[in-house]
Nucleic acid binder design. Sequence first.
DNA 1: TCCGTCACTTTTCTCGATATTTTTAGCCCA
DNA 2: TGGGCTAAAAATATCGAGAAAAGTGACGGA
Lengths: 232, 232
Amino acid sequence: MIVSSHPTLEHSHATAGSATQQAYLALRRMIVTGDLKPGEKLKIDVLRKRLDTGASPIREALSLLTSDQLVERFDNRGFRTAATSHANFTEILNLRCVLEDMALRSSIAHATETWEEALVLSHHRLAKQPRTDVEAFETRHKAFHMALLANCDSPMLLRYCGQLYDLNIRYRYLAGRALDYQRRDVTREHAGIMHAAIDRDAELASERLLNHYRQTGAFLSGLFAGGAPGSS
Amino acid sequence: MIVSSHPTLEHSHATAGSATQQAYLALRRMIVTGDLKPGEKLKIDVLRKRLDTGASPIREALSLLTSDQLVERFDNRGFRTAATSHANFTEILNLRCVLEDMALRSSIAHATETWEEALVLSHHRLAKQPRTDVEAFETRHKAFHMALLANCDSPMLLRYCGQLYDLNIRYRYLAGRALDYQRRDVTREHAGIMHAAIDRDAELASERLLNHYRQTGAFLSGLFAGGAPGSS
DNA sequence: TCCGTCACTTTTCTCGATATTTTTAGCCCA
DNA sequence: TGGGCTAAAAATATCGAGAAAAGTGACGGA
């Protein structure tokens, strides 16, 4: 169901998979949710004990996380989580706006009934999910946003969007519940985007989507001035 | 000097580095140049013997190559090189056009003398490099194109451009010397792009750059019809 | 006081062996 | 003949120990 940014993992909350896979998922979540802080050194041994697995799976998982730009690797000097900064946040926001705009328009251009129905479904699930369970909410939130783009004809573009989504969500976690959720009626915004998409109105849908992002973006960006998230 | 698409490797033709690093570079080149064919199964043991190293470095190198979308990983089912297809080629071309357009404009907008000089230098090196040594030529060709974008203010965007460049060059290698170099005066095209950039004429530079890409693109695309490269 | 050097500690990286999973091939039975 | 089961083979994935590299801090000379 849930589109992962990485071709390797298919299951959303699967029981097992290889040790590497489990480590990958665990580490990924730890980084995205801020459990592992930006720029933090990732010592193999520490992680090995924490996740109760061997060094090889950890090492391989970290290498894979490199794809997602959540981890950086330094030859003979180990791994660390990607740093955060205001500039980086802005970059992500800008790239998302450009790429998601493309993807959304393409998605709408190729609209099918199946896509439309999947979109409605993901929206329903999102609307029904209470905000109390933050992780569950974020999972569905991503699922909804990816469902919007899912019908686009470019898997690579989709992959980039997924990646950028996760990088962005990381900043949301870092900002903490500061922005939970400002004063906006986000639910209404989602519905608005979805309806425009269903009506095949690419122009309107895109406008609403980008607005959606830019508002959260501006808010988060403001927090930086206040010195909230970020390492450097 | 040479901007690598991967933060890990700094040296262009360094002597050593870790075994993983060496494997990464070797495998990368093998895939890009078509020595390892698209969609090919990558058996650890075979590669281990071929590169005369352990299984761990191979494994880790392959995981890293995942970042570059040159390798795909399947849990418990090993690795294979990324497949090629006409659709994929088109995707890459389109993404490149959008992203390089952004990057180039940004690069020009932030133009400095240092950047300008580095650009001129890379162009000179490219012009001086005879086409007989294909790999050396391609290295400088990439260096030139990246130099154009290098001054853009978004490292992530740059990274994507570098990745896409390599994915594209792979198709060129696959097409073989079929397009070496059609009937165009590519050298003149490069000079044209560079001069527009130096003149800070973003509009013209971008137009020339995209034209440059689209022409090669159209040509390569034509080869697909003739059933030249690609696996599926 | 400052800088370079050396030995020591910590951490990363690599190897070879073993465990687990997938794939293949053979076989039986409808 | 063909589908499904089982055993053997092949490949992947994992572990634990040892080698190599980077980091640390004390000592000695200018």
